[in-house]
Amino acid sequence: MLKILSQPWPWYISGPLIGLMVPALLVLGNRNFGISSNLRHICAACFPGKIPFFKYDWKNESWNLYLAAGIIIGALLVRLFFWNDQPIVLNPKLTAELSAYGLKDFNGLVPKEIFSWNAVLSVRSLIMLAGGGFLVGFGTRYAGGCTSGHAITGLANLQLPSLIATMSFFIGGIIMANFILPIILRF
């Protein structure tokens, strides 16, 4: 059992399990699966200022903060008890391209040459970690949802606005990964 858990799970197992989050949260009390709204609740709870967007009773949404806390705990449990030591099998084209930017370690979930406390003051780390994070926070709220809120929950309920949002996510990502990130990675 532990051996199965330690293997990476194929897409046809993990995808449907992620999809089941939608009905599970609806049945557990009309909750809409969408993680990025937590960022808004944190703003509303900690520093709402005089901004109307953050003037609401965030405690009504506290369930979602519990969900986020659960995600952290779940990931920690994997790290502690059924971590997969084998590197992820990646497309050789990707590893060849990244090697050219000095990324050689493909063992973890993130490239250690960029996503580590030692590297954090390099230009590309700051752009990617901090700049990227800012865009994630700004963009998800502007779009009214993220991958879970629009791409999964919205599409599951056949909402056209969510399809538009999802297409925009991917167009943005494709432009960044193929045309802009190669420049950032040179720094």
Binding site: I35, S36, N38, L39, I71, V110, I127, M128, L129, G131, G132, G133, F134, L135, V136, G137, F138, G139, T140, R141, Y142, A143, G144, C146, T147, S148, H150, P161, S162, I164, A165, T166, M167, S168, F169, F170, I171, G172, G173, I174, I175, M176, A177, I180, L181, I184
Partner: peptide
């Protein structure tokens, strides 16, 4: 916003390799 915000989030997603979850 679904277009403008969506594109900006897409940029951030590709940079960080992570959406909020």
């Amino acid at each position: 916003g679904q277009i403008f915000g969506g594109l900006l989030f897409g940029f951030g997603w590709a940079m960080t390799g992570a959406c909020p979850g």
